[in-house]
Design a protein around this nucleic acid. Structure first.
Lengths: 251, 251
DNA sequence: CGTTATCTTGACCGTCGTCAAACAGGGTGG
DNA sequence: CCACCCTGTTTGACGACGGTCAAGATAACG
């Protein structure tokens, strides 16, 4: 962990977060400067490392700079449910920035880099600059919509559709984050983690991936997934991208 | 539908919403006055009536004054998933107040009364008064935490635990809303609606309710549900109320 | 190159969905 | 007051989707 107060927009550790906020809200130069001026550290964590724990009082606001992370909850009998995947630019914020006691855990799924901001500083900036608070509300609403669709997916769709739906969502979100290439995405998730997100066992995830591949709806090479028949996959996934609010007019 | 501009605090149609916001945030007299002064109508709707539709451009902000409502999504093959239950004082707001195009439907589950506020007016007040926007962010975060637990419930727990968990949650939320009596709650949900919220069929909900009743964990008389062994029920439900954030310090 | 995590596949089984029918309750109209 | 109906509840029989258990194959990694 090292101090890093470079303020150039491109390499700024919070630049991804600022761009993400501006996808859903309007910030002016002062807002951007206030966010860019936040005290922060960057922290590099290994895959699998837990970075926030339910029940703890929160003192830090963590933003992913690179890598992939998730929030999750464990049930009483040891099962794990992934609540949300977090791409670079996203915060583990929403549950913990304003709620005093976290009710969820968070972990890095790949080796990741986090920007860590003292919670009090972040909240002070949000309070002083209403546009920032508005922006936080917007991204929280979008995350809520994504969470709602995850509930529909897990509660209502069969395993094959569920897996296909998650792939569609991640493909679009990776693309929006600039992490997709024309011929697919690099999906650094184990089948167990996919199952943890969908309410399936790893062996069933495996069966369903095979089924999708045999139908020609996806192609797999290592962790690379490509979508040779995107529209057919969307169809099989019962996928409608409205809930991602990717084209939300900024307010 | 009739105009109603009574401004006395107790009977004000938005009084429930203001009190709810103040459970999670701090409002001053000016904030309260700004909310109470919003233009509004009250609207009475019958059980089962859809009050918001996915895909529509939103122009109204709807707050429940009395009754019970829910948000839901339908899947491609006709199944319905209830995303959230809404008690008096809550808004159907969070998805639709700031996101331009709704991705969820909403309906009244019982005969209900809604306060309807023009969206532009509500947004203007929120923009002028940051404390209100902060309050909206807080309740949105709490709703997100409830939604996350619903995902855990539907994806990870067996039917019996799922039903028990929903009963625990509703018991506490009804109580917080002043709708519970010492010996239980009046649950105006059909078993089909319970199933729509949990990802179960109505017949399986019926079996699980019977199982819980036979174990002495709940008692049913008509729509009345009581909890003779609350702690044992919580245990069977894998229930931990942290996620409801009922004791959140206000910020 | 050995060790471990992850993937893959098969066989078996249980929870829950499906289908069906009987039953109860509440409202309506004769 | 009583048929009637409609919605919702209750219960049973059966089947399938997906979980469990287990073993072997492959890939990742020091």
């Amino acid at each position: 962990m090292h101090q890093d107060h470079d303020t150039s927009a491109l390499s700024h550790p919070l630049g991804g977060m600022i761009r993400r906020l501006e996808r859903h809200a309007v910030l002016d130069d002062n807002d951007r400067a206030a966010l860019a001026g936040l005290p922060r550290e960057t922290r590099r964590v290994a895959a699998g490392q837990v970075v926030a724990r339910a029940g703890e009082v929160v003192t830090e606001h963590q933003v992913i700079v690179s890598g992939l992370a998730c929030r999750f909850k464990d049930t009483g009998d040891g099962a794990r449910q992934i609540i949300a995947f977090h791409l670079p630019g996203e915060s583990i914020c929403c549950p913990t920035l304003f709620l005093d006691v976290a009710d969820q855990d968070a972990m890095a799924l790949t080796e990741s880099e986090f920007a860590v901001v003292p919670r009090a500083a972040f909240r002070a900036v949000a309070r002083q600059r209403p546009a920032i608070e508005r922006a936080l509300l917007m991204v929280t609403l979008v995350e809520g919509a994504i969470l709602a669709e995850a509930l529909v997916n897990a509660a209502r769709r069969d395993g094959r559709t569920r897996v296909a739906h998650l792939l569609c969502e991640l493909a679009l979100r990776f693309d929006a984050a600039g992490l997709a290439s024309p011929n697919g995405i690099d999906l650094p998730l184990t089948q167990e983690q996919i199952g943890d997100a969908l309410g399936l066992t790893p062996v069933h995830v495996n069966r369903m991936l095979r089924s999708l591949a045999e139908a020609g709806l996806i192609e797999r090479r290592g962790s690379r997934v490509s979508f040779p028949r995107w529209n057919a996959l969307k169809e099989a996934a019962d996928f409608d991208a409205t809930y991602l609010h990717l084209d939300q007019r900024r307010v």
